[in-house]
Design a protein around this nucleic acid. Structure first.
Lengths: 338, 338
DNA sequence: TTGAAAGCGCTAACAG
DNA sequence: CTGTTAGCGCTTTCAA
């Protein structure tokens, strides 16, 4: 079974390659309806599929975009990926993905490889530890959209979710429910804006309500199975007057709830809980979990459309920054009056 | 900022394109260390990145594989994707993905597009509703690995997980824990082998233990938010002697547990539960959930390695069928003695 | 309305 | 050890 090329089609239809090409690409500079039909028939008969590589080589556009994500395990990222995938299709593009695993070396290498493959542009959740490389990338005018995190000092297309707002919504909600000693639990991470912003939201909400800096209760632990639970246990034992916990991520929430259960404290009566990230399982937990919903799907979709827009305009429009708003989903775990 | 090509490098280094090509691809038919170094320096200086399109066009291999999955929302598929992604990288390949959403038309179109893009082969969870198309695909000797489901009557590379075994393990475990009236909850779906096999495993386990066909308790509902919960509620009300539920999928499990809670029945004392699919949240449910763990990551990994093997051997080896074994993870929800 | 020919960037005989 | 040359399959002037 040999490969069938445009030449085969041309020969069999008794026309030139040019004509075939024009017909395929709807550049019919007034081709006769008759030849058009003949060529189309031959194409079907031979089951001809144009070689996208050759086309891309010639036109230096591949209609493929790349996505670099950093973590597939977290369902938040799955929904982002879905948004990217859908938007990609709707625009007639294809999607290549790879996973940096939060490692800057991988991130850099994968981007290089995307460029070698002539991928038209990329959507990325950056590790934020390759500042020079990204500066170069932006300078080279390679179409790029950064999502979920910010790249300090770089004027680049960016779609993020308002973390300060989300966190402070969560904390204010707890305050409104009469909670007074609210702890925040988070990963220790120097680089990533996300965490810093959520903690900042927690801080602002409390300070605005008249708390002093010393009243803040911030629990930090490594991003490592079990560490968060340990840290939470230790903290709750040392600060038994804590009456609410704000958790900054969906995986953290699960460990926090385990810790509370292990201490035999009831949720929400003794300790209220609000988690970051809405998930499929949140409403099925016991008690159902109050969460901050992040529009991940939308973020993916918007970023992709932005990227493709940039590709179409040869990246000549000024970079845009978009901030999406999170949403509070109230369930029983936060002790709200029903 | 112009694109730099192999010609630029050759010119600047004062050698021919051939030499540069050889050096890049480590085909140094004894190139002088000196010229090698010089060329390498120029490559770095010019920040030359070979155009993979041109290379692919010439060598008619792109080192890209495609994956067609049918559902990104379920975390089981995320772990499969991870396995595929990792294996792809480890073999120096790249990955393109798309989502058929269980729609046969999309599935077919995406595969066609993969082939146009000269993707070297694909891994797919098929909708099983394109039998003719797949037969053609196999006949054309296009490298292909089918995962998770079986394509009846087609001799093709296949990696699946033993569903009959998994289901019967779950049911036997419940029997061993003294449960006698075990219901199975599942989606209604004509096409997909997965569910039929899980129900078959349930059936076999019970029949083998001396139950009659009339004793089977199979609850079916549409795959639609809330339907499963409704159906479960109805069934448990009509059959109050039911003392255990085997759920055939992780999403179903969540709804089943909701239903049981809504009826005020304790898990596992009054009703024991075993769920299909291990998830991050299973051990954090209340009570922690006994599950059947499916080696999804491995399935992805093995399928990918198989595919790349097929690509390397030009698909000349006989198709292989691999069946992976699931594993029972015992937690409190099934009422096991600790 | 159609075709001939050049060339996208790369690799691989074949020659030297 | 290195270079010349001929394509891979397609698009696109330019000419007919």
């Amino acid at each position: 079974m040999m490969k069938v090329t445009i030449t085969d089609v041309a020969k069999k239809a008794g026309v030139s390659k040019t004509t075939v090409s024009r017909i395929i690409n709807h550049n019919y500079a007034h081709t006769t309806e008759e030849t058009r039909q003949r060529v189309l028939d031959v194409i079907k008969e031979l089951d001809y599929r144009p070689n996208a590589l050759a086309k891309g080589l010639k036109s230096s556009q591949t209609n493929v975009i790349g996505m670099v994500l950093s973590n597939l395990k977290n369902p938040f990222w799955t929904s982002v990926l879905e948004g990217v995938e859908d938007a990609t299709r709707n625009q007639g593009f294809h999607l290549m993905i790879c996973n940096s695993d939060e490692e800057p070396e991988k991130e850099e290498q994968y981007i290089r490889e995307f460029r070698m493959r002539q991928v038209d542009g990329i959507v990325i959740n950056p590790t934020v530890r390759n500042p020079d490389f990204f500066r170069q990338l932006v300078d080279s005018r390679y179409p790029l959209v950064v999502i979920n995190r910010k790249l300090p000092g770089l004027n680049v297309n960016n779609v993020v979710i308002n973390n300060v707002k989300g966190a402070s919504m969560a904390v204010r909600h707890l305050l409104n429910n009469g909670k007074r000693n609210i702890a925040a639990v988070t990963y220790r991470n120097e680089h990533v804006s996300t965490w810093k912003e959520r903690i900042q939201g927690y801080r602002t909400a409390l300070l605005d309500s008249g708390y002093a800096a010393e009243d803040l209760r911030i629990v930090e632990a490594e991003q490592d199975s079990g560490k968060i639970k340990e840290a939470t246990l230790r903290f709750l034992r040392e600060h038994p007057d804590t009456d609410a916990v704000f958790s900054t991520n969906n995986m953290i929430t699960l460990e926090v709830m385990d810790a509370i259960r292990e201490l035999g404290l009831s949720i929400p009566e003794r300790i209220a809980v609000v988690g970051y990230d809405e998930t499929v399982w949140a409403k099925h937990l016991n008690p159902p979990l109050t969460t901050i919903r992040q529009p991940g799907y939308q973020m993916g979709q918007i970023a992709t459309n932005m990227l493709i827009e940039a590709i179409r305009t040869k990246n000549e429009t000024e970079p845009k920054q978009i901030v999406l708003e999170p949403e509070l989903i109230v369930r029983r775990s936060s002790g709200a009056a029903e």
